[in-house]
Design a protein around this nucleic acid. Structure first.
Length: 840
DNA sequence: AGCACGCCGACT
DNA sequence: GTCGGCGTGCTC
């Protein structure tokens, strides 16, 4: 009999949007495993679900109120805690900061699809005609059609075409024995995978390897001798040696080889595979040297700190990251590298795997749940000291963290919106590093104004790399880089008057492209709008097609069959319909297509330069798995002259023969009613401009705009980040926007306009009342969202604004008070977004 | 977020 | 009277 546990109780946080920590009894046999950080299966109300143990304690200080309600843990899912202690604390911080539950934050830190959940399910036991009431027959018929598979209770409402579950009817059916109600437990979808392995028998029983006959048997034995006790996956051993199952059978019979099942790691193809060969070390440029010294010095000294690494495109930030990782590894510490999802390309991964090889684990969204689980488990077990991935990788279960790198820290994709937690991975990275005594490196050519402000305030150490560094060509020789490319503005307004511009490409841009075609150089064209034309309108009556479910006009998409098969698509809900050749209102056949999408620019290029080979890269051409990579590979091989696409062509690409970058319409997004519109435009222009002339060939950038005097354009022209930041900061200060103010966005949604608007009003009033209690807090709105209706749901926005000096917890308390008081009654939804990044 | 309960008006 | 909608409260 084992001694009863000293701490027989466990505090558990269920992985749901339910607030609070719940106490369970720990059965003695689970005592050793149900430690803080372990995932456990618990009964919760009528359901069974997965939670995380956050604390163990004894029953001496149990309050008598909860004591009688205690239930036991059903199961422990982890032999080793899934959530290390520092991540327990970090997720709690994330929950408090972003106004979600601890359970939601923990869920973000765990691989998806590995928990257990239950739901109420009805099983039919009697045929429909055994019941004489129509509604009961209908339910029984539906159950019969499912062949005993069972129907979730929540779906019974739908079967009868009503909104609520007919509890009464179900109870009567159950009492009569016509149905059975069950709590059906859904096991984890993703599990560890095992495969048959082979190894040499120890000690070799019976036979003796000298008696072995045949090349295959000998080859297999040699192979297995080389892999040691861990054995080899049978299928791989067969492939390597030509052995077959009969080879194994005869060796097994003689006791020379034994087979066993063991876990294998599923690996994502493309981004993974064997490590590339390490490139010889490069000499650091003085600015890189200084940055490396500062960062690596802090890592070696173990003193932590956040660094803002501001380096122009091509200044060699990645090399600095690699040195930082090296410093961490040399100290026996681990590291995380965050990259924007779109930049997580094979090219990027190769860069990190070259020097560190098999020490690098990659996490990314295109991995299957199984692959992700395998990578995650091995990271937790200490197999990989370096993790590279998108925002969720900030929660990678690494111990002993030395450094977190956030590449392109200004990228909006670091902010998660749905589902909660609405966290910013950069901010979580800074906090996680800080708590771990680790170093955080925020790198960008165009840092966010938030980070600039933190550097100005002395919270971050600023490191500047203002020059491009020498590059190594494919042949191994290094050469001086071209300077940052000159940027030229083409005023489309003037162009229209003077040269009667018809399409999307101005005379000068055409000339520039033509010159590249003539010299065999490459061009990148940015048109940040997909489809053919954003709007259609009837020449005669002004009719414009709009989405039935969303408050937006439909975009025209044209496929390779041309105009006759034109489609209308909603970019918010995906609705697709045929564009009819005549106006449905007045019958006019002259429909005008307004504006330019990537498809239309592609068509124009084909007309003007029929010989040019064009690759289009946008959401529509990259939705298939691997398509993104294929396009970039082709362009990189020189199999195309022009890469045309949306913002995805602006990020982190490095092609030596690109000497021209053209921005077809720099104004896209610039005039949106969002205080960050100008910052985003400047960042996009600076990033895309950085794609030109990165190697020895001098590059050139052409920006087409109707607003040549706009600050984003003017400073992008001069590659002047500091100038832009200065002007934009003044603007933010005047308006009290970040980084000089704190914001919480409130999004009120509902299926019906009046009630949604009314609820938004109630939130406005309640927020106003709460805001009065705290100096400096202001409420803006409610106002209809920019897109006032999406997928049939109406949307209203409010914005709570507070001075930077107000502690985030105080502002959070204001909003939380209103959530408790007003909430989201009657089928509405209210989303709270702390530090919003999107449109408000 | 589920899930169940209990209160209301609208029909047979 | 029941049924269906909806608001409310609870989950160790």
């Amino acid at each position: 009999m084992p001694a009863p546990p000293a701490a027989p109780l466990a505090q558990v946080v269920p992985l749901t949007p339910v607030d609070g920590v719940y106490t369970y009894r720990v059965p003695p046999e689970m005592d050793a495993e149900a430690v803080a950080g372990a995932r456990v299966v618990v009964p919760f109300g009528r359901r069974t679900l997965t939670g995380v143990v956050v604390e163990r304690f004894g029953d001496d200080d149990l309050d008598p109120e909860t004591a009688p309600k205690l239930k036991p843990l059903y199961d422990v899912l982890d032999a080793r805690p899934a959530v290390p202690a520092d991540l327990l604390a970090l997720t709690k911080w994330v929950a408090d900061y972003t106004l979600c539950t601890w359970g939601e934050a923990l869920k973000a830190a765990l691989p998806s699809g590995t928990g257990v959940e239950s739901r109420r399910v009805v099983h039919g036991l009697a045929p429909p005609d055994a019941w004489d009431e129509p509604r009961g027959r209908k339910v029984l018929r539906a159950l019969q059609e499912r062949n005993g598979a069972g129907l979730p209770v929540a779906q019974v409402a739908g079967v009868l075409g009503r909104k609520t579950v007919p509890q009464n009817l179900l109870r009567r059916l159950e009492a009569a024995g016509a149905v059975r109600l069950d709590d059906e437990v859904q096991e984890a979808r993703a599990r560890a995978k095992t495969a048959r392995h082979l190894r040499l028998a120890t000690p070799p029983a019976g036979g003796n390897s000298r008696t072995v006959r045949g090349a295959r048997q000998t080859a297999l034995l040699e192979h297995l001798a080389g892999v040691g006790e861990g054995g080899a996956v049978q299928a791989e051993a067969f492939a390597a040696t030509g052995a077959t199952s009969s080879t194994v059978k005869s060796l097994e019979a003689r006791g020379l080889v034994e087979a066993f099942d063991a876990e294998v790691e599923r690996r994502a193809d493309g981004l993974d595979g064997p490590a590339p060969e390490a490139a010889p070390p490069v000499d650091l440029h003085p600015a890189q040297e200084a940055a490396t010294d500062a960062i690596a010095g802090a890592i070696r000294a173990g003193r932590g700190g956040t660094f803002l690494l501001h380096g122009v495109t091509g200044s060699g930030k990645t090399e600095v990251y690699l040195r930082a990782l090296r410093a961490a590894l040399d100290k026996g510490k681990t590291a995380i590298v965050l990259v924007p999802e779109i930049a997580l390309t094979p090219q990027t991964v190769r860069r990190f795997r070259a020097p560190f090889g098999d020490a690098v684990a990659v996490l990314h969204s295109r991995m299957s749940p199984g692959e992700r689980l395998d990578a995650w488990t091995r990271i937790r077990d200490g197999r990989y000291p370096i993790v590279i991935g998108p925002r969720s990788a900030v929660f990678a279960p690494l111990d002993n963290l030395g450094v977190i790198v956030v590449d392109e820290e200004h990228e909006a994709s670091y902010k998660q919106f749905d589902p909660a937690p609405r966290y910013h991975a950069r901010d979580v990275a800074v906090m996680r590093a800080h708590r771990a005594g680790a170093v955080c490196v925020l790198g960008s050519a165009t840092p966010s104004l938030e980070s600039v402000a933190n550097a100005n305030a002395g919270k971050y150490t600023r490191l500047e790399m203002p020059d491009r560094v020498p590059v190594r060509g494919p042949d191994g020789t290094t050469h001086a880089p071209a300077p940052l490319p000159p940027v030229r503005v083409i005023d489309l307004g003037r162009e229209k008057q003077v040269r009667r511009l018809k399409g999307a490409l101005s005379h000068d841009l055409r000339l520039a492209i033509e010159a590249r075609l003539g010299r065999g150089e490459q061009t990148i064209l940015l048109q940040n709008r997909r489809g053919y034309a954003p709007v259609v309108t009837c020449e005669d009556c002004g009719w414009t097609p709009t989405c039935t479910d969303c408050a937006v006009s439909l975009t025209v998409h044209r496929d390779r069959y041309g105009k006759l098969s034109d489609q209308l698509r909603c970019h918010y809900c995906g609705l697709t319909e045929r564009l009819q050749p005549a106006c449905p209102e007045c019958g006019e056949r002259d429909l005008r297509l307004l504006g330019q999408g990537t498809q239309r620019v592609e068509e124009e290029i084909a007309e003007v330069f029929p010989e040019a080979r064009v690759l289009r890269m946008d959401l529509d051409t990259t939705s298939r798995k691997g398509a993104h990579r294929k396009i970039l590979d082709r362009f990189g091989r020189g199999d195309a002259d022009i890469l045309l696409g949306t913002q995805m062509v602006a990020k982190g690409l490095d092609f030596p023969r690109v000497t021209l970058v053209g921005v077809v319409d720099a104004d896209t997004g610039m005039l949106l009613p969002d205080f960050r519109a100008s910052e985003r435009t400047f960042q996009l222009l600076a990033q895309v401009a950085g794609r030109a002339g990165r190697h020895e060939l001098q590059g050139e950038v052409l920006l087409q705009t109707r607003n040549p005097d706009h600050a984003a354009i003017r400073f992008a022209l001069a590659h002047d980040f500091h100038g832009f930041a200065h002007v934009e900061m003044a603007e933010r200060l005047a308006l009290g926007y970040p980084p000089y103010g704190r914001l919480v966005g409130v999004e009120v949604k509902g299926p019906e306009q009046r009630s949604t608007e009314a609820l938004a009003e109630r939130w406005g009033v309640a927020l106003g009342q709460e805001a009065q209690k705290v100096a400096g807090v202001e409420v803006l709105g409610p106002a209809p969202a920019l897109v006032g209706r999406v997928k049939k749901w109406w949307r209203y926005h409010l914005l709570v604004k507070a001075p930077r000096t107000l502690p985030p917890s105080v502002l959070a308390a204001v909003v939380r008070a209103v959530r408790d008081r007003v909430g989201a009654p009657g089928g509405h939804r209210v989303n709270l977004d702390v530090d919003p990044v999107g449109l408000y």
